[in-house]
Amino acid sequence: MGKTYWETFKEAGISRREFLKFATYITGLMGLAPSMVPKVVHALETKERIPVIWLHGLECTGCTESFIRSNAPYASDLLLNLITLEYDETLTAASGILYEESGKMVRAGLVGHLDKVVEEYKDRYILIYEGGVPLGNDGKYCIVAGRSYKEDVIELAHHAMALIAMGTCSSWGGIQAAKPNPTESVDVTKLVKKPVIRVPGCPPIPEVITGTILHIALFGIPPVDDQGRPKQFFGNRIHDTCYRRPFFNAGQFVEKPDDEAAKKGWCLYKIGCRGPTTYASCGNLRWFGGISYPIQSGAPCIGCADKNFWDKDPFFERLKGVVTSKSWCGRRRNHRCPCRPRYCGRH
């Protein structure tokens, strides 16, 4: 039995008052009601810190970049106090064969760190996948320390307590799975038989990453929807939580990215905003401590948390290949278009 959170906090010299404040803070972060605060405190006092193995596959490590910018709690808090991040290829200071290798070391009479962790925390660790899995050429397109990522994904899942697919790559396949998908990349759920919690986003919001890990650490698997996404973060459309929603309801739309309406901050629906079809917390939490999010910055959402978003181009049109009124009043005849006299000739 490892140390509980409260014991760790005490050792670090954090007062009870600070501890309770922290508990209240993360209750809100996890999307729980204020009445849950005592339960969170209780969980923090009794649950041991949870070991985490974080694997990287075919990806850009953007999710890790996002994760370390988490504001509430700070990623450093989460890494050093709340979870025991035992294995992570990008965030650890240690490197080299003793850290990474497993099979070769066993043969040489030594045990690699990864094997040691798996042995020590059997059936207790959280396994986080970051990155798609290339199946083409027997998984040779993604090899970490001599092992193909494909093997790791399957082997390490056997003894994991919970599996998290972090980011769009491991959740849906990612950019590398875009047509024609030369590496035959797939999401991890294609390989793993166990239920996987999907935290899609390219990258996911830092607070969503930490919130999901925390929820598993304290209360186990969070409630998920039919696609395995935590309901508290992926239950709402961006559109329904968007601060530009009144402009949509009033029917006030941006016609092209730099027109008068865009300067007034009207709705980006007509220039292909994917807010109405994307489920994420961008509208609620926003990014990096609530500074902004794409729509607030004036760019239409591209739906990066959505399945196969990379193939749904053009990003700046609403629906690909669907006959709409735009097709009636084509660009060539736009100066005669009876529907939109104000905007004619501007395209």
Partner: peptide, 14 residues
């Protein structure tokens, strides 16, 4: 599907 006219020009959204 594609709001082809904007009827509320001159009004505050609310």
């Amino acid at each position: 599907g594609d709001p082809f006219f904007i009827g509320s020009i001159g009004w505050e959204a609310n």
